[in-house]
Every structure is written in structure tokens, then in C-alpha cells.
Deep mutational scan, measured.
Amino acid sequence: NQASVVANTLIPINTALTLVMMRSEVVTPVGIPAEDIPRLVSMTVNRAVPLGTTLMPDMVKGYA
């Protein structure tokens, strides 16, 4: 099973992502692959992402 990116904290809308905000976890449904974490750093989220939420491609500006 592939690990996905999961919010390690509440990420407010329009926040630039940092490494400490994200962790990898095997979850269903599958979200952004964990190997993309380095690429996500400094990208911003377009909605509030609660703790434990899987990051989906449409949640990160410029990812999809």
C-alpha cells in the first residue's frame, strides 16, 4: 500500500506548507503520494485542512 500525505496539524487556508505540517501514512482513500512531500513544501492550501486529513491534489494550489 502506498503512503499518502496527511496533515500533522490543523493547516489554515492559504498557509504555505512546511515539512512539520505533513506526515506520511497509509490511508483510504489514497491522497497525494508521500514521495511528493518535498515538492509540496512552500505550496499553499486552498482550504483549511484539519489534523489527520489526507491531502488531496485539489487542496494544494499548483499541485494538480
Rank of each mutant, 00 (worst) to 15 (best):
N1G: 12
Y63Q: 05
A16H: 15
G31P: 02
V27L: 06
V49S: 02
Y63T: 03
P33T: 10
I13V: 14
V5P: 01
Y63I: 05
P33E: 05
P50A: 11
T44H: 13
K61W: 13
V45N: 02
A34L: 04
M56I: 08
V41D: 03
T53F: 12
T54G: 03
T15N: 04
T28G: 05
E25M: 05
S42D: 09
M59W: 09
Q2W: 09
A16R: 11
V30H: 10
P33H: 07
I13F: 14
N1E: 15
P38V: 12
V30D: 15
I32V: 08
R39I: 12
M22H: 00
P38H: 10
N1I: 15
L10A: 14
D58M: 07
A3E: 14
V49L: 12
V27W: 03
D58Y: 09
M21P: 02
P57K: 09
T28E: 15
P50Q: 09
M22N: 00
D58C: 15
G62A: 10
V30I: 14
E35F: 06
A3K: 06
A34F: 06
V30T: 10
I37N: 00
V6M: 05
I32H: 00
I11S: 01
L40M: 05
T9F: 15
V60D: 02
M22S: 00
S24Q: 12
M22K: 00
T28Y: 13
Y63W: 12
G62S: 09
P50I: 07
E25P: 01
L17I: 13
V27P: 00
T28M: 12
R23L: 05
E25L: 04
S4A: 03
V26N: 07
E35A: 07
R39P: 01
S4Q: 02
M59V: 11
M59C: 04
D58N: 12
Q2E: 15
T28H: 07
V20R: 12
S42P: 00
L17W: 01
V20P: 14
N1K: 04
V5Y: 01
P33S: 11
T9Q: 11
A7N: 00
V26I: 10
I11V: 07
K61G: 09
V6N: 01
A3P: 09
K61S: 12
V6D: 01
N1P: 15
M59D: 13
L10F: 13
P33V: 08
S4V: 02
L19M: 13
P12V: 14
L51F: 10
S24D: 08
Q2A: 12
E25G: 08
V30Y: 14
V60T: 02
A48Q: 11
V45Y: 00
G52Y: 05
M59K: 01
L19Q: 11
A64D: 15
A34E: 09
V30A: 09
A34I: 08
T53I: 12
L10C: 15
V5H: 01
V49K: 01
D58E: 12
N8P: 02
T18K: 06
G62P: 06
V45I: 07
S24P: 09
T54E: 01
G62D: 13
N14V: 03
T9W: 09
L19Y: 11
K61F: 09
T15E: 11
R39D: 04
Y63H: 04
P38A: 13
K61H: 12
L19H: 13
T54H: 03
A34P: 07
R47I: 11
V41H: 05
N1L: 13
R39F: 11
V49R: 03
V6H: 01
L51Q: 13
V27A: 09
V41K: 06
R47M: 14
V49D: 01
L40V: 09
N46Q: 09
T44D: 05
R23S: 08
A34D: 08
I32C: 04
M22E: 02
V5A: 14
V45S: 11
A64I: 13
P38Y: 06
E25D: 13
I11T: 00
